[in-house]
Design a protein around this nucleic acid. Structure first.
Length: 716
RNA sequence: GGGCAAUUAGUUCAGUGGUAGAACGUUCGCUUCACAUGCGAAAGGCCGCUGGUUCGAUUCCAGCAUUGCCUACCA
């Protein structure tokens, strides 16, 4: 854009406000309107009148994120609530922020650096973390700027990041608190390990992929006869410490308690009974490898079996694997099968398809290995979270999501909270350099080592699982005053896969640290799928970019499309809805133009009797009914329904019927017609505002009313 | 494997115990002084399949099929 054009635009502002000509063009208008709102300070509830509060916690976008259509849903719907309650005279607070997103961010920055030929290992931890901070400074708020384009009316003055200083302090406090309660412990556990990322992954960070493989039937001989087992992973047999069968399985009854010889290694291993074994699978007898299978690890805990690690954290065979040491697992597998054939112990091979576990970030095959990790006992916390929902203190909407919530919490395992990456909250655990394994937990580094009295204590290199910090989101880093005024809040709204990952964790964290529920409602919205019902995926190019729509059709039209389709269940995204939204903005624009042109410069003779026609009465009745409906629907989170009703009312009842009638009424009933047009338009703008804030505010600003303020805070 | 949900017009979806509605699309007619991103009109559906309850079912129940999502995981 050149300078002359700029000047022209400036001059034409007034005429734009007064409806120049042609179709509604959101492009020059939306940024100006947003600026107007932001400058007004009314996104900040401290500047709003009233006493009652309404608080929404934004589902934290990752700093690496860019706006996708899921965010549009996550944020447009709460914006309706926030705008509605703000107009209702309630102090509304929408708390925004971003998540440092440990693995995800580290992965993104690592890839960026790699392009420049820089390896994180060459840089070292400190420099690498510095690079991430630099990256975060440059791109970390991008997504927030994009949310502004959507019209999100969050209180940006309270924007937080999960690694802000004050936030980090609360994270440390939480860790120390749990430790003092005896709920944090270190232990060896076979964890899902990504050999590529070099970290353990939570169950929720795993993905699965179908794979065609083989099932090898291997004989473990003994003095009598031996046992045949079936396995998909022969290379792990070097770490076998038992054979397990189902206690009900008659075939193996007399073998239980005896031993067989583990081939190649020639170790005697015990035959044990365990309920989890499926008699139907393979031969009914299973090799138990505690170090490299999570289910087997659990069996080993029940039977006190030894753990022998034969695969290391880079996915190579360890020295325990003897002659196979240093080989990749897949190479070891081939060699071992060759050896078994030589020994005449490979009974048969079947084709077999199953699902393998892969890393959610990089897609590498997960290698379960034993690893020293920190665990948080979940027993008490899970109970609290269950109780809050059972007792109705927290509502999960729709209600049928309560079932998976309870199921998850009832069968929950202790939470592995440590991660072996560099980006995140380092554990506030301080180790003695001279006494291996001795440590102290505290918010600050001890001045003097309590163990050797002389060393500089070293902080644990592990960082906390990202969710450990986001679990504290409703209160961490907030000032005392804010906590007093705005905690607990009212609502979180997110997609269903976050229910246990995040919502449940916020619930028990709130109860544990603030002795109060963090929010009253958890609203689970549908998932946006492609038009043919497939999951959206960036790699398949089936993603839907809301910014493209905002650019092309405007934010109001984009919001319209999102809300129009958000009816509670999964959405098969229909682009036509955005076009419908754009048409609707144009309709609103033109209807307003009509009303403004007809009502300006008209001298009203107040002495004339004002007689309402049937049409006047009808539209006024409809308006008052629709207003109540909208209120009810918004308060019940029925946003789509509300918008459909609004659309129908405004377009058909107001424009098609009343405006057309009004043209005739001008001849004999001017006063009341003007009054009605003016009133219905203004009221319509109000009730449309939470849904389509930009255009309604823009039109509202053209009115020459006394004491006019922003529609944003106009009373509902 | 378990759980949840969906299946209604060409498409995306509402909805109801008495044989169905919207948006977009399609067809036809309109440059009617807010809007052609418009106005008016029309066509278009054995409401997934099979059985049950009922005077009557698209709506309630059961089974089946298809699809999707969540969750678990079997070596």
């Amino acid at each position: 854009m050149n300078k002359t054009e700029n000047n022209e635009n400036d001059k034409s502002t007034e005429s734009q406000f007064l409806f120049g000509a042609g179709a509604y063009d959101p492009k020059p208008i939306e940024p100006k309107i947003y600026e107007l709102w932001e400058k007004s300070g009314f996104f900040n509830p401290d500047n709003l009148p009233g006493k009652k509060t309404y608080v929404v916690y934004m589902p934290l976008p990752n700093v690496t994120g860019t706006l996708h259509i899921g965010h549009a849903l996550d944020n447009t719907l709460p914006d309706i609530l926030i705008r509605y309650y703000r107009m209702k005279g309630i102090k509304t607070l929408w708390l925004p922020g971003t998540d440092h997103a440990g693995i995800a961010t580290q992965y993104v920055v690592e890839k960026e650096l790699k392009k420049k030929g820089i390896s994180k290992f060459e840089l070292g931890r400190e420099k690498f973390v510095e690079k991430i901070w630099e990256w975060k400074k440059e791109y970390g708020n991008l997504i927030l700027e994009q949310l502004k384009k959507l019209g999100v009316s969050a209180d940006w003055s309270r924007n937080r990041f999960t690694m802000d200083e004050t936030y980090a302090k609360d994270v440390k406090k939480a860790f120390v608190h749990y430790y003092k309660k005896g709920w944090l412990y270190q232990g060896l556990r076979t964890v899902n390990w990504c050999p590529r990322c070099g970290t353990s992954l939570s169950e929720l960070e795993l993905e699965y992929k179908d794979e065609e493989t083989k099932l090898w039937y291997i004989k473990y001989p003994s003095k009598d006869s031996g046992v045949v087992i079936a396995t998909t992973r022969p290379e792990t047999m070097l770490g076998d410490t038992a054979i397990a069968v189902n206690p009900k399985d008659e075939r193996f009854k007399k073998l239980v308690g005896k031993t067989v010889t583990l081939p190649i290694v020639n170790r005697e291993i015990l035959i044990i009974e365990d309920e989890v074994i499926d008699e139907e699978f393979g031969t009914g007898a299973v090799k138990v490898t505690p170090a490299h299978d999570i289910a087997d690890f659990e069996i080993s805990e029940r039977h006190k079996l030894p753990i022998i690690q034969v695969i290391d954290e880079r996915g190579r065979m360890t020295k325990e694997a003897g002659e196979y040491k240093g080989l990749k697992t897949i190479e070891a597998r081939e060699k071992i099968i060759e050896e078994l054939i030589k020994l005449n112990l490979l009974i048969k091979t079947e084709r077999y398809s199953h699902r393998i576990t892969i890393c959610y970030r990089c897609g590498s095959i997960i290698e379960p290995i034993p690893s020293k990790q920190w665990f948080l006992k979940m027993n008490e916390l899970a109970k609290k979270a269950i109780k809050a929902v059972r007792k109705g203190k927290i509502k999960i909407i729709p209600k049928n999501f309560e079932a998976p919530y309870f199921a998850w919490l009832q069968t929950i395992r202790d939470w592995t909270v440590s991660r072996q990456i560099w980006w995140g909250h380092q554990l506030p655990a301080w180790f003695c350099k001279n006494n291996s394994g001795k440590f102290e937990v505290g918010e600050n580094k001890p001045k003097k080592c309590p163990f050797c009295n002389q060393c500089e204590m070293e902080q644990s290199p592990d960082v906390l699982d990202t969710w450990f910090s986001s679990a504290l989101w409703p209160f961490a880093g907030l000032s005392e005053k804010d906590l007093k005024n705005y905690y607990p809040g009212d609502l979180v709204m997110n997609a269903r896969e976050i229910l246990n990952l995040w919502d449940a964790r916020m619930i028990y964290s709130g109860l544990e640290f603030k002795k109060e529920i963090p929010f009253k409602n958890v609203l689970i919205h549908g998932t946006i799928l492609t038009k043919d019902g497939k999951r959206m995926s960036k790699s398949l190019g089936t993603g839907i970019d809301p910014l493209k729509y905002i650019e092309q059709y405007g934010a109001d039209a984009t919001r319209f499309a999102v809300i129009w389709q958000a009816n509670g269940q999964d959405i098969h995204w229909n682009e036509a809805a955005v076009v419908a939204g754009r048409k609707f903005t144009n309709k609103i624009w033109n209807a307003a133009r009509f009303v403004v042109e007809k009502t300006k410069n008209v001298k009203i003779n107040n002495n004339n009797p004002k007689v309402k026609s049937e049409a006047d009465k009808k539209i006024l009745e409809s308006l008052s009914k629709i207003k109540k409906d909208i209120e009810r629907n918004i308060e019940n989170f029925e946003f789509s329904k509300a918008l459909h009703e609004l659309y129908d009312f405004f377009w058909h009842e107001f424009c098609d019927i009343y405006i057309e009638t009004s043209k005739k009424q001008f001849e004999n009933n001017k006063e009341i017609t003007i009054e009605t047009l003016d009133y219905v338009l203004k009221e319509s703008l109000k009730i449309l505002h939470p849904f389509m804030p930009f255009i309604t505010e823009q039109i509202y600003q053209t009115f020459k009313t006394k004491n006019k303020q922003l529609l944003l805070i106009e009373s509902w």
